[in-house]
Amino acid sequence: VFVDDHLLEKVLELNAKGEKRLIKTWSRRSTIVPEMVGHTIAVYNGKQHVPVYITENMVGHKLGEFAP
């Protein structure tokens, strides 16, 4: 499973602090992992960042699938 390192670091850091804030990313190719559930990730679609709230059903899919 591929997840960009910088994105995973941000998610794990927020989980350690117990925070839930918006994470901006250009990494549409990253796979959604269970650690991301409950976070809102702003995924770049080529024009703007689209906020995507991550749920359990999204695990295993790519971030780009949810930012048309």
Rank of each mutant, 00 (worst) to 15 (best):
V3N: 02
K10M: 15
D4L: 02
T25R: 01
K62D: 06
P51Q: 07
P68S: 08
I54Y: 00
V59Q: 12
R28M: 04
L8K: 04
V1I: 14
L7G: 00
V43F: 02
A16Y: 07
G60R: 09
R29V: 13
E35Y: 06
Q48A: 13
T55G: 12
K47L: 12
G60E: 08
E35C: 11
Y44W: 14
H39T: 01
V59G: 06
E35A: 15
K47T: 14
L8T: 02
K20M: 06
Y44V: 04
N15Y: 02
L63R: 00
W26V: 07
T40W: 07
E9I: 09
L12N: 11
P34Y: 13
D4E: 12
K20S: 04
L22T: 12
L14G: 04
V59T: 11
P68K: 12
G38F: 10
R29H: 13
P34W: 11
N57E: 15
V43E: 00
G64K: 11
P68T: 11
V43K: 00
L7H: 00
D4P: 03
V11Q: 00
Y53C: 10
V37A: 08
G46P: 02
N57Q: 13
A42F: 03
L14M: 13
R29F: 14
T55A: 11
N57G: 11
R29L: 13
S27N: 04
R28F: 05
G46F: 09
N15A: 03
E9R: 14
I41P: 00
I41Y: 01
M58Q: 12
F66C: 06
F66K: 05
G64Y: 13
V50S: 08
P51G: 06
V37Y: 10
K47Q: 09
K47N: 11
L8W: 11
N45T: 10
P51F: 04
P51A: 11
E13G: 08
K10W: 09
Q48I: 13
R28Y: 06
E56L: 10
P68Q: 08
L12S: 06
V3Q: 04
T40C: 11
F2M: 05
A16L: 12
V43S: 02
G64E: 12
D4W: 03
K47P: 05
E65G: 09
G38K: 10
A67V: 07
L22F: 05
K24L: 09
E19R: 05
T40E: 05
V43I: 09
P51I: 11
H49N: 04
K47F: 09
V33F: 05
A16N: 10
V33R: 04
N45D: 13
K17R: 12
T55R: 12
K47G: 07
G38T: 08
V50L: 12
I23P: 01
E35D: 10
L14V: 02
N15R: 02
A42P: 01
H61S: 08
L22S: 05
N45M: 05
I54L: 11
I54R: 00
V33T: 07
E9C: 15
V11R: 00
L8G: 01
H61E: 10
M36Q: 02
T40A: 08
V50P: 06
T40N: 10
G18Y: 04
Q48D: 10
H39C: 02
R21F: 11
V37W: 08
V59D: 04
Y44D: 04
I54V: 08
S27D: 04
P51S: 07
V43W: 03
K17G: 05
Q48N: 13
T25I: 01
S27W: 05
L7S: 00
H6R: 14
H61I: 10
L22H: 05
H49K: 02
K10R: 14
G60I: 03
K24Y: 15
M58D: 12
H49E: 03
G46E: 07
A42R: 02
T55D: 14
T55V: 13
L12T: 09
Y44I: 06
I32M: 05
K62T: 14
A42V: 03
V11M: 02
N45C: 06
S30W: 02
S27G: 03
I32N: 00
S27M: 06
E56D: 13
H49M: 08
I41E: 00
A67G: 07
G64T: 05
V52I: 13
E13W: 09
R28C: 06
L12Y: 06
W26F: 15
G46M: 12
E35N: 05
E65M: 09
P68A: 11
K20F: 13
G46Y: 11
K24G: 02
Y53S: 11
G60Y: 15
A42N: 03
E56M: 12
V50F: 10
E13Y: 08
V1M: 09
R28N: 05
M36G: 00
W26I: 07
K17V: 08
T31N: 13
K20P: 02
G60T: 12
S30I: 03
H6A: 14
P51T: 08
R28L: 05
K20Q: 05
